[in-house]
């Protein structure tokens, strides 16, 4: 894993990984309308990170994907999630105080089968985004740490 892979694999990766990431962010942002959600979209984005690490090696990937930044992002996502849970504490923990209120994410949905409006869902949408950030950062940190440890151990054995 310390050398990068062949030219074919590198070209295909540079072509594909942007689309995988955009699909993951689409799944996160449309979690309240289409199948998927924060966890699924975050895992898709993290699989794009894994593709980058496998193709380019750990050293080159960490030039533009800092592990400390991802670690910070993970804690931020979790804190945002818990904050949105606590904001509803006027009624109950995890109360959906934003839905049908007319503010951000607060339009009321049309009842029945319809394509949907992105500005609905209340705290469901906000929590989707928070959990998506948390999951993509957590799985990215796991992949980067494991690959770095694998590379270091392999170098030490030689």
């Amino acid at each position: 894993m310390k050398e990068e892979m062949s030219r074919i694999v590198r070209t295909m990766t540079t072509l594909i990984y942007v689309f995988i990431m955009v699909y993951g962010f689409y799944v996160i942002a449309h979690g309240h309308l289409t199948p998927g959600g924060g966890f699924q979209g975050g895992s898709v984005v993290a699989s794009a990170f894994a593709l980058l690490v496998v193709t380019y090696g750990n050293q080159k990937t960490q030039d533009f994907l800092q592990k400390d930044l991802l670690s910070l992002l993970e804690s931020t996502g979790l804190v945002i999630f818990i904050c949105f849970a606590f904001f509803g504490l006027g009624a109950t923990f995890f109360y959906n105080f934003l839905s049908n209120s007319g503010s951000l994410f607060g339009s009321s949905a049309t009842i029945g089968v319809n394509p949907g409006n992105l500005n609905t869902g209340g705290t469901v949408t906000a929590m989707n985004i928070a959990v998506g950030i948390e999951v993509l950062a957590a799985l990215g940190v796991i992949v980067l740490t494991m690959s770095q440890a694998s590379e270091t151990i392999e170098k030490k054995e030689k």
Binding site: G31, H32, L33, G121, G122, V124
Partner: peptide
């Protein structure tokens, strides 16, 4: 009607 989200599965999981 209660949460305004179309995806009932996500509604259950997050709300």
């Amino acid at each position: 009607a209660e949460t305004g989200a179309n995806n009932v599965v996500t509604t259950i999981v997050f709300d």
